[in-house]
Design a binder for these strands. Structure first.
Lengths: 120, 120
DNA sequence: TACCGACCTAGAGCAGCTTCAGGTCAAGTG
DNA sequence: CACTTGACCTGAAGCTGCTCTAGGTCGGTA
């Protein structure tokens, strides 16, 4: 009786967590004698990271690649870092999109203000 | 012999444009006597807006709703404005996610620097 | 006339969840 | 002690939003 809480904590749905584990997108999660998942702090750290990566547009394929590197241990730490670095750059791209969209919306909304009169 | 260029201009794929038109997500696009689409400035303006909205996470259902309002004319202008306003707020949410992810990545990258030594 | 490139449509395929059907188990209730 | 309830489990089907494929049309060049 844990998964619902933990899911909420890291802003993933219960189903998404199960899906991620099954697909190897996150490292596998220990089970109790009842067959239910027992989340370790490490698990939570992972899920938190994955949630953040997903929310900012990382494809699951890349997340899986990252998880695969993790399973291969410290030898692959440098490569893992590279994946994160890459995503950091991707964030800038998204930032640009956000800014562009914001400007466009402001423009459109100004037009609506003209049409509608500035009541709202 | 137009769609490929126009698609590139508004950063949508040719297939996406066709899909949007067919699904009523954008207003329909005029055809020449050859059956090919002839994009009006208005069409381009729409596609540009849709591209920006999509890139920042608006679901197609909402885009379609917006297009439906447009087809209903000026009477629905206020409602259309509301949709855009709503998305403007959604942008802030995304901004927060971006910022949070950025902080998390910085933290993780710092840890990797410790493990790997600061070579990179 | 034959081919090439850019367009067209309908429909299949794919990613990333999300929902559903059917089942287990532990705890509380009459 | 049987029974219900609630949180978990699994495998598989369903949904969204494209993306790709197959098969075809049309206008221009060799």
């Amino acid at each position: 009786m844990r998964i619902a809480e933990e899911a909420a904590k890291c802003s993933l749905s219960v189903d998404t967590i199960r899906y991620y584990e099954k697909a190897g997108i996150c490292p596998s999660i220990e089970r109790g004698p009842d067959g239910n998942r027992r989340f370790s702090p490490e698990n939570l750290d992972w899920l938190n990271l994955l949630a953040a990566l997903r929310e900012t547009g990382m494809p699951t394929k890349k997340m899986k690649y990252f998880a695969d590197l993790y399973r291969q241990g410290d030898a692959k730490a440098a490569e893992r870092k590279k994946v994160l670095k890459q995503h950091e750059m991707h964030l800038d791209l998204q930032q640009a999109r956000l800014t562009k969209c914001k400007a466009l919306l402001r423009h459109k909304l100004a037009l609506y203000d003209q049409i509608l009169g500035v009541k709202t």
